[in-house]
Design a protein around this nucleic acid. Structure first.
Length: 831
DNA sequence: GCTTCGCATGGAA
DNA sequence: GTTCCATGCGAAG
């Protein structure tokens, strides 16, 4: 049985209307109006007058396919679309986020955001089988240009397919000799990556078959798309099969910025050239084991392989339409590496219509990256996708322009790592310092074409404070001008600096793992934890509304607080010429410096309104006493002093730093609200100095130090024993006072008491036997858990986040593995 | 003793 | 279970 297509094509003299629902004959003198849709073979379906009219009016499917499956609605205008046949294949596009959109709406979208639609839509149009929705239906539809392509969720399926197609097509069509390698089973290897995406492989395999068919059937055009089309069977309603080449060729959707030769555009749009290792060693990113060695086609690649750029390769580039760096499926990168630059910004940067900027990727600097080691770890996929392939660990120098227009040369190299590679940029310290970047800041890599210049922008971490949830990002019309700190500097090819709007995102916080938690804390502008012990001591304040009790230990009188300390406001102390000391503090609101009494202990977010000592300057509108110079002197002087003494201070404080970190983190983690409350004069404990024997200072750091024997009589043990007894007695007294009014359901997570029942579940609360014995046993291991607990009196309610927060001042990593016995596990509660 | 380099390790995705 | 990557750490300079 011959198909309609073969009938119409093979026997032009006696033509029947291509519409299978129609048996009308078609005149030989075919007027244009009788031409219908383009077949996959490249021919145009020939229709009778009636069908042609229906087609031209866009009612063909409604007329003839009304009962067929595949009807959907345009996501934008809700118009009914038949997605089940080739007739209407050009009237809609698949959306990245799932669903379909009519071509009219798609055009509008394209006008607004050409780049973000082009490739994905075309690819989807081409390759997505019928009825196969995007696997990522939860992704938000791209509604506005400013939502930008970089904010789109990845379309893994689409991307993977693209990658695979790229491999195969570039392999098959770029290489005249490839015919020998197209024999069945001739595929050399299937990567794990491909195995994961078997459907895509099938599609690509079908393409393989097309190609093979092309050759085996003796078509002559080496790269003639038409010859391929002819080899494709034409089933008018089989959009589920293979590739709709016409979708690309005829669609009004054009791939922007893609120089595509007319002849091959339908086949080769989006196909990459590829970098390859200079020595021919296969790079993981090389597209095929048989990939030609040097399809170096990008301007960027000129920087790396100028000698390899020849006319033939340029032709390849032109044929392929896009360069390797352009076409590497960006969505294969982890979202945290997606560059957050919108099309608008790119236009703004490129300025010159002949040039364009291509955001490549970005990376938030880790502590290691920003540290003095001078190595910036590059995400592997980014490095392999956007930087030149390197085969030797030594790598090669890479010139990158920074935001100030200065050129930097980094060594782009890798280390072998777990059968893989770890890519780094070496020698970045000067650049990072010049940009004043630190851990948590983000560097962005982009490329300006046609120069191919690599540019390195940056974004300070302070953006995080204004980051929005991408789920709630606004449409273009709602977007207001960006705050200044959302602007990233980037350098144009002429050296001038262009400011880039950085689309806020919440991604950073999401991608920060626990390992990076400290990093995040460090980025909290308001939480400057990069403190020496002495600095931190000055900043610690008793929790608001907590009243101290006095305890005397070793002759020292202590104020004990039952709540965790909070961080106070950082201030500067100065002395005037008369020798009088002043304390200077900066208002959180107006940033003006105010003078306060030396002994004033201020809130973390102190403002002028709280300047009770100087009514004239208790408003942000009041003038500042200090000149800018004086402020600069004061700050720089103090900072300098701090830095000078930093090494020593760190050494001095190392033994308590862990406890301090924990204290500080604690204050941040759960009690930021406390920071805003008033703080009263704090502990009378003398400043912690070397030699201090307080319970904090005597702790060995992080599990270091000798284990204490059961009958150890050292200062630590004696102190702990004493304190435990004191605390226990006090607690018992308190609890007995409350016993009558507190339901038994109140389980103390802290300490046992005859008045408490049932037995607490917490491991920290399982002592039995005499207090002293328990205390001694606890001291034996010196696993002193300082339970920061509101639970002493009214604080035993479950609502308190403090309840379960523990500070282990004697951190012993191995402790977690040690099962606590009933006797061993007891918690001391220093107040 | 300090810095740099290269690799190893282990937590996170 | 695998891969990635932040960071630790020892060797070498």
């Amino acid at each position: 049985m011959s198909s309609p297509s073969s009938a119409s094509i093979a026997a032009p003299a006696v033509k029947i209307c291509f519409n299978t629902h129609c048996k009308e004959s078609v005149s030989d003198h075919q007027p244009p109006r009788r031409r219908g849709w383009r077949l996959r073979s490249g021919e145009i379906a020939e229709l009778c007058d009636r069908c042609s009219s229906a087609f031209e009016q866009g009612t063909f499917c409604e007329t003839f396919h009304a009962d067929d499956s595949g009807w959907r609605n345009c996501e934008t205008c809700v118009k009914r679309l038949h997605c089940g046949c080739i007739v209407s294949a050009q009237t809609y596009v698949f959306l990245d986020a799932g669903g379909v959109e009519c071509i009219a709406c798609a055009r509008k979208s394209l006008t607004m955001a050409p780049n973000q639609i082009s490739s994905s839509l075309v690819l989807m149009q081409q390759h997505v089988p019928e009825g196969r929705d995007s696997p990522a239906k939860t992704w938000r539809s791209i509604a506005t240009p400013l939502c930008g392509q970089w904010r789109q969720a990845p379309h893994m399926w689409n991307m993977t397919m693209q990658s695979d197609l790229q491999q195969r097509l570039s392999y098959e069509f770029d290489r005249p000799s490839s015919i020998e390698k197209l024999a069945p089973g001739g595929r050399h290897s299937i990567s794990a990556h491909e195995k994961k995406f078997e459907p895509e492989r099938k599609i690509a395999t079908n393409l393989n078959n097309i190609s093979r068919d092309k050759y085996t059937h003796g078509n002559t055009g080496e790269n003639d798309p038409m010859s391929i089309r002819k080899s494709v069977s034409a089933d008018p309603c089989s959009t589920s099969s293979l590739v709709n080449f016409e979708a690309k060729q005829n669609s009004s959707i054009k791939l922007q910025q893609l120089p595509v030769s007319k002849e091959n555009s339908s086949l080769l749009i989006g196909l990459p050239a590829s970098f390859s290792s200079s020595n021919g060693v296969k790079d993981p990113m090389n597209l095929s084991p048989n990939q030609p060695p040097a399809q170096v086609t990008t301007p960027l690649s000129k920087q790396f392989y100028p000698q390899r750029m020849n006319e033939a390769e340029l032709q390849v580039q032109m044929r392929n339409g896009r360069t390797r760096v352009d076409t590497y499926p960006r969505t294969q990168l982890l979202p945290r590496y997606w560059p957050r630059i919108t099309n608008q910004e790119m236009k703004q940067i490129s300025g010159d219509p002949q040039s364009s900027i291509t955001p490549l990727f970005e990376k938030m600097l880790s502590a290691s990256d920003a540290g003095r080691i001078g190595r910036l770890v590059l995400p592997k996929k980014c490095a392999e996708a956007y930087f030149p392939a390197i085969s030797q660990p030594e790598g090669l120098p890479l010139k990158v322009q920074d935001a100030s227009g200065k050129d930097w040369v980094f060594q782009f190299r890798f280390w072998p790592n777990n059968n893989s590679r770890m890519y780094v940029l070496e020698g970045v310290t000067p650049c990072i310092q010049a940009m004043q970047l630190q851990a948590g800041d983000t560097v962005t890599f982009s490329r300006i074409d046609p120069e191919g210049k690599l540019v390195m922008g940056f974004r300070k971490a302070s953006n995080s404070s204004i980051e929005q949830d991408p789920e709630t990002h606004k449409s273009s019309s709602e977007i207001s001008p960006p705050p200044e700190d959302q602007i990233t500097s980037l350098v144009q090819k002429d050296g001038s600096t262009t400011k880039l709007l950085q689309v806020p995102s919440k991604r950073k916080a999401k991608t920060l793992g626990s390992k990076s938690y400290r990093l995040r804390i460090e980025n909290e502008e308001s939480m400057e934890l990069k403190l020496t012990w002495e600095e931190a001591q000055k900043l610690l304040r008793p929790a608001p509304n907590s009243s101290p009790s006095i305890v005397v230990i070793e002759g020292h009188e202590f104020e004990e607080y039952e709540e965790a300390p909070v961080l106070g406001k950082k201030t500067y102390l100065t002395s005037d010429q008369a020798g009088e000391s002043h304390q200077w503090v900066r208002c959180e609101e107006c940033l003006k410096w105010r003078k306060v009494p030396v002994d004033a202990l201020l809130l973390f977010r102190w403002t002028c309104l709280e300047n009770v000592w100087d009514p004239e300057r208790s408003s942000c509108s009041s003038a500042q006493e200090l000149s800018l110079e004086q402020i600069a002197d004061m700050v720089s002087c103090k900072s300098g002093v701090l830095k000078k003494g930093k090494a020593k201070a760190e050494r001095d404080s190392v033994e308590v730093s862990d406890g301090l970190d924990t204290l500080a983190n604690l204050a941040i983690l759960g009690y930021t609200k406390s920071l805003h409350k008033s703080s009263q004069p704090t502990t009378r404990h003398p400043r912690h100095k070397p030699g201090c024997t307080c319970i904090v200072c005597i702790q060995p750091p992080s599990g270091k130090g000798p284990k204490h024997k059961p009958h150890c009589t050292c200062n630590v043990c004696l102190t702990v024993k004493r304190r435990f007894r004191t605390l226990e007695l006090r607690r018992e007294k308190r609890q007995s006072e409350k016993a009558s009014e507190t339901p038994a359901k109140q389980k103390s997570p802290i300490l046992p008491s005859p008045l408490l029942s049932p037995q607490p579940a917490s491991m920290d609360v399982t002592p039995t036997g005499p207090i002293d014995e328990v205390a001694t046993q606890k001291v034996d291991t010196l696993n002193v858990d300082m339970v920061v607990d509101e639970a002493s009196d009214h604080r035993t309610t479950s609502a308190s986040p403090l309840k379960t927060r523990q500070i282990d001042l004697n951190i012993q990593p191995e402790r977690e593995e040690e099962p606590l016995t009933q006797h061993q596990s007891v918690t001391l509660v220093p107040y």
